[in-house]
Simulated assay, not measured.
Amino acid sequence: MIRKMFLASLLAAASLSLSAAPVSAEKLANKLFGAKDAPSQQAPMPIGSYARGCAAGLVELPETGPTWQAMRLSRGRNFGQPEMIAFLEDLSAQVSRINGWAGLYIGDISQPRGGPMISGHASHQIGLDADIWMLPPKRLNLSRADREKISSISVRSADQRKITTNWTAQHAAVLKAAASDPRVDRIFVTPPVKIELCRTAGRKDKDWLQKIRPYWGHDTHFHVRLKCPRGATACETQKPTVAELSNGGDGCDDSLTWWVTAALEPQPKKPKDPNAPKKRGPREYTMADLPKQCAAVLSSR
């Protein structure tokens, strides 16, 4: 009897061990990538899509440069593809020649190896996204502690319908400089900013205005997304293109007003389908949800 009970307990323990294994194997990807504090020692490569991928061989944006400062350093998100780091350095130098801007305050780019983040962004996963503060830098010698305390400014009203007096012609010049760069795929801004740019830009500004896309939030920063670099075979190009989204125009048509009118009105609640599959966000992804190459990025030295 005692022998049978002993064998039963062994079998139960083995069963528990086997059932626990998949849980360990399914550890959340954002925990795994968030734990890495250095890039992989691999050739640079954006892998997957902007919101479902990872990044090999990223480069760290220096904390301070002649025309920029990386903000919120405690987050460890100042890593990007070489093309992104070069773009930020180039843009900041260009912006430093605009009256009132000493350069750029640069927010989140990506984690050292990209991937889903523990908090914040759904995208920024492959090293080709960067947030740039709307706050015009007056000086570029902020300490690490200063950069944790200082905040950007909002250029959008509380009701989300219009710009505020924080918005200036210099902001427009900064956005035009960014969007005019051929490396840029699109830039996300708060909808009132797109409306204001459409109101003030010239009639021949279709090419760069087309890249300015309205989206929720983005009132204290603008979000730059670069194209997949040439030869980046593991990088997924975003669809639809900005040309398709604007029907080949500049995106300044009547549909733009939807963002500050009907979209802000209370919407009737749709009944929930109890049989509908639950949608998972990036913070619920496991490694199985990411491209297979991401396992090698994670395990690389």
Rank of each mutant, 00 (worst) to 15 (best):
D250A: 14
L10V: 11
M71Q: 12
V193N: 03
Q293K: 04
C198A: 05
R230G: 14
V184D: 12
F188Y: 15
S246I: 07
V174F: 02
D205E: 13
M84Y: 00
R301Q: 10
I153K: 06
A169G: 12
I150W: 09
A56I: 08
L140I: 06
N275A: 07
C235Y: 09
I109Y: 00
S110P: 03
K206V: 15
A14S: 10
Q210D: 04
I106R: 07
K176E: 14
A93Y: 08
M45W: 04
P277V: 01
R144K: 13
E89R: 14
R75W: 13
Q170P: 01
S96A: 15
G76K: 04
P116T: 00
L175F: 03
R161L: 09
H171D: 04
A14I: 09
G120H: 04
R139V: 11
A43I: 07
G53R: 00
P137K: 05
R144M: 10
P274D: 00
Q94E: 14
D90R: 11
I118R: 04
V242K: 12
V189D: 05
P214I: 05
G248C: 10
A86P: 02
V189A: 01
H171G: 03
V193Y: 03
Q41A: 13
Q94H: 09
G100D: 00
A263H: 13
K138V: 14
M84H: 00
L135Q: 11
L88D: 06
A86R: 10
P39H: 04
A55E: 07
V224L: 10
P66W: 06
A8F: 13
A51W: 08
T67K: 10
K204G: 14
K176T: 01
V193S: 07
P112T: 00
G202Q: 02
C294L: 08
P191G: 09
R199P: 12
V174P: 07
W216A: 14
M71P: 08
